[in-house]
């Protein structure tokens, strides 16, 4: 367990920001599921729970997800279902258990840039923007590639479009981290293929996506799958070798594309 000298409930984002930069050992508290495992000694922990950031809101053009929104809300949200299908729900529903998802936050999940992240894999297949308090609004892709800065992830916004989506993952056990995760989406005739837990951080396979027409046939899907392995790097860790992940990548992408077409 980590150590904490002070606990502060932020009354405004301004104040949270101020607190965060007051001391280099101050830290934003998300759902604590991950932080709990650390042993670091922090100075002040900053609680964002009183800022109304635990909501999923629909605007004209986008869906906004506050950073303190819990994964369980993502799983059960009618708004998300209506706009994006089950892709987000399917991405989070394997994560540990209901009690866990009642606590884990979207802010903590995205800000941590976990390489195994189902959440990030799914968000990447949609057009997601990250709203940082200091860093401004940037596409998730850019955020993931940027080096970690001390900042507050305020919310995420996802473009409302005529999405068709599918989420696929392979896990050694039902509630384990994914060995490989794939989120596939199609809007009009533009595909997005996102692969996570390769085991490195989720990325879009843009060239492979470009190979797919609106209604791809089996050969076109196969070509896109080959291209995925061509353009992305895969690696090995405790949960699987590089070779196995490359095989899985083709299978999951194929299944995802087929599911979207259905």
């Amino acid at each position: 367990m980590f150590g904490l000298k002070e606990y502060r409930v932020a009354q405004s984002l301004d104040q949270a920001d101020q607190l965060l930069h007051e001391h280099k050992n101050n830290v934003i508290l998300g759902g604590l599921l991950w932080m709990r495992m650390g042993r670091k000694n922090y100075h002040t922990g900053i609680d964002l729970s009183q800022l109304g950031l635990d909501r999923i809101l629909e605007t004209e053009e986008a869906i906004e997800i506050g950073c303190m929104t819990r994964l369980r809300q993502i799983e059960t949200s009618g708004i998300l279902d209506a706009c994006f299908g089950r892709v987000l729900a399917d991405a989070v529903s394997h994560i540990v258990g209901v009690q866990f998802r009642n606590a884990a936050t979207m802010g903590g999940s995205v800000f941590s840039r976990f390489s195994f992240s189902d959440v990030v894999t799914a968000l990447l297949a949609l057009e997601t923007h990250v709203h940082l308090y200091r860093g401004g609004i940037l596409p998730l892709e850019t955020f993931l590639e940027s080096s970690p800065q001390r900042d507050i992830l305020v919310k995420l916004s996802l473009k409302k479009k005529a999405w068709k989506t599918s989420y696929q993952s392979h896990r050694m056990t039902a509630t384990d981290f994914p060995v490989l995760a794939a989120a596939i989406s199609c809007c009009e005739d533009r595909w997005r293929i996102s692969l996570g837990a390769r085991p490195s951080r989720a990325k879009l396979a843009t060239k492979a996506a470009a190979l797919l027409p609106k209604k791809p046939d089996a050969a076109q899907i196969a070509a896109a799958c080959d291209q995925v392995v061509e353009e992305m790097s895969f690696g090995g860790n405790q949960r699987g070798t590089r070779e196995y992940r490359e095989i899985l990548a083709k299978v999951l992408v194929k299944r995802g594309v087929e599911a979207v077409c259905r």
Binding site: M172, A174, T175
Partner: peptide, 16 residues
Amino acid sequence: MMNNSFMQYKIPSRLD
């Protein structure tokens, strides 16, 4: 030991 927690050493859950 590489899998020294329930995060890494998986025992069956009821979904398995």
